[in-house]
């Protein structure tokens, strides 16, 4: 839930993309590095016609092409198979370099989780992105401040996070990750002409479901009682 506005803004307003030609060479590339957030990207891809919306109902079922982590080649519009954390930014660096060699003006977006950036590989990739002045690369962190075990501040402190990215050579900004206007302002153009960009999107885990918001026990929850499902629908209707 914390990711949905980020993808809504990317697919509706920012990305150059063609749902009827998912591999259009001049498209912008959007890599969901925190693969476990795939439902958010599946919903946006379906909404834009990459595949029929009813396929969403098959999510994670045995014959479905929509698994619990996204796979390139299976799901039209998915750029990279992710799920193991800390891979997306390096793939994004390679993609951004390739696009530069090919002289395409396409941009690369990599969406990471806050728990994900515990991985050292993310920081290897960050150094590499800055070394190559990859202004065509924009990383977004879904900073909901909760990872699997609990709060990021308790599991492995990330702060001062903006300063870290700046020290690693990124043009780093922050915004309310549920404010579509603020996201649009930051995502629409590269943040710098010479540096890779980093957007720290402050989000709320479980946003829109009052009883799930900011509750780590909802991080992986997949089995819901009929009562819980009813309460979910009720909460969404209230949001309206």
């Amino acid at each position: 839930m914390s990711l949905i506005e980020i993808f809504r803004v990317l697919y509706d307003d920012v990305l150059k993309h063609r749902p009827d030609e998912p591999l259009w060479p001049d498209r912008d590339r959007c890599i969901l590095s925190k693969g476990h957030g795939c439902l958010a990207i599946y919903v946006l891809l379906a909404s834009h016609g990459y595949f029929p919306t009813q396929e969403l109902r098959t999510f994670c079922r045995f014959p479905s092409f929509l698994g619990g982590h996204p796979e390139r080649g299976k799901v039209p519009g998915v750029e990279a198979s992710t799920g193991a954390l800390g891979h997306g930014l390096s793939i994004g660096v390679g993609t951004a370099l390739a696009l530069r060699i090919q002289k395409r003006d396409s941009r690369v977006f990599v969406i990471m989780g806050d728990g994900e950036i515990n991985e050292g590989s993310v920081w290897e990739a960050a150094m590499s992105a800055a070394k190559h002045d990859l202004s065509n690369l924009t990383a977004v962190i879904d900073y909901n401040k909760i990872q699997s075990y609990g709060r990021t501040s308790e599991v492995l402190e990330l702060e001062p996070l903006l300063d870290k990215w700046r020290a690693f050579g990124f043009e780093a900004r922050e915004c309310d990750g549920h404010d579509v206007g603020a996201l649009r302002d930051l995502l629409s153009n590269p943040l710098s002409e010479s540096k890779p960009g980093l957007i720290l999107a402050h989000t709320v885990k479980g946003k829109g479901i009052p009883f799930a918001e900011n509750d780590p026990t909802w991080h992986h929850k997949s089995r819901l009682s009929p009562e819980q499902i009813e309460t979910l629908y009720a909460a969404l209707s209230e949001e309206g």
Binding site: R72, L97, L99, Q102, S121
Partner: peptide
Amino acid sequence: MEGVSEQNIIGMAAGLAMEGF
């Protein structure tokens, strides 16, 4: 030449290969 960062190097190579290199 990307430094002592094997994880990044492999991911970066993957990104390059996805684009036809």
